[in-house]
Structure formats: C-alpha cells, structure tokens
Amino acid sequence: MTYKAILNGKTLKGETTTEAVDAATAEKVFKQYANDNGVDGEWTYDDATKTFTVTE
C-alpha cells in the first residue's frame, strides 16, 4: 500500500511517499524522515487518503 506524507516544516516543505504494509509502519518511516530533515511538529493522519501531515 502506498502512503503519503505532507511536510509543512519551517525549513522543509514538500511531499514524499512510501510503500508499507500498514499505517503504523509508514508512520515510523515518515517520522524518521522528518527527524532526519529537522522537522518536528504536530502529526495527523487521514485514513481515507492514506496521508500523514506534519506541521511545525
């Protein structure tokens, strides 16, 4: 399944996708990606669109 992350960081804005077996696995991948890029904020998840959003 393909999951998407939308990054609304102070220094990084954009989107990325990952293939994962479930939302929990995708969330770990996206949170690591955000952390590696200095983005730390509030996370939300929309199951209907399989989209995570982080906003700083």
Rank of each mutant, 00 (worst) to 15 (best):
M1W: 13
M1E: 13
M1Y: 15
M1Q: 14
M1H: 14
M1A: 13
T2S: 08
T2W: 14
T2D: 06
Y3C: 06
Y3N: 04
Y3T: 05
Y3P: 05
Y3I: 04
K4H: 12
K4R: 13
K4Y: 13
K4D: 04
K4M: 06
A5L: 15
A5F: 15
I6L: 06
I6Y: 07
I6K: 05
G9L: 13
G9F: 14
G9R: 02
G9S: 09
K10L: 14
T11M: 10
T11H: 13
T11I: 11
T11G: 11
L12C: 15
L12N: 08
K13R: 11
K13M: 08
G14R: 12
G14W: 15
G14P: 03
E15A: 09
E15C: 15
E15I: 13
E15K: 06
T16V: 15
T17A: 08
T17I: 09
T17Q: 10
T17V: 09
T17Y: 14
T18Y: 11
T18S: 05
T18Q: 04
E19V: 15
E19K: 12
E19F: 15
E19Y: 15
A20G: 03
A20V: 04
A20P: 01
V21D: 11
V21K: 13
D22R: 02
D22I: 01
D22Q: 03
A23K: 14
A23T: 07
A23V: 11
A24S: 11
A24C: 13
A24W: 10
T25W: 07
T25I: 07
A26N: 00
A26S: 01
A26D: 01
E27W: 15
E27H: 13
E27N: 04
E27P: 00
K28D: 06
K28S: 08
K28Q: 11
K28L: 12
V29K: 08
V29Q: 07
V29F: 15
V29Y: 15
K31Q: 08
K31C: 07
K31G: 03
Q32K: 13
Y33L: 09
Y33R: 04
Y33A: 03
A34G: 03
A34S: 04
A34T: 05
A34N: 01
N35S: 14
N35Y: 15
N35P: 01
D36T: 08
D36A: 12
N37L: 15
N37A: 12
G38N: 09
G38H: 09
V39L: 13
V39F: 14
V39P: 02
D40G: 10
D40Y: 15
G41M: 04
E42Q: 12
E42F: 12
E42K: 10
W43M: 03
W43Q: 01
W43T: 00
W43C: 01
W43A: 00
T44G: 06
T44P: 00
Y45R: 00
Y45A: 00
D46I: 04
D47H: 11
A48R: 11
T49E: 06
T49V: 05
T49A: 06
K50E: 02
K50C: 04
K50F: 08
T51V: 06
T51I: 06
F52T: 01
F52W: 07
F52Q: 01
F52K: 01
F52L: 00
F52H: 00
F52C: 00
F52D: 01
T53F: 13
V54E: 02
V54A: 03
V54G: 01
T55P: 01
E56H: 06
E56A: 07
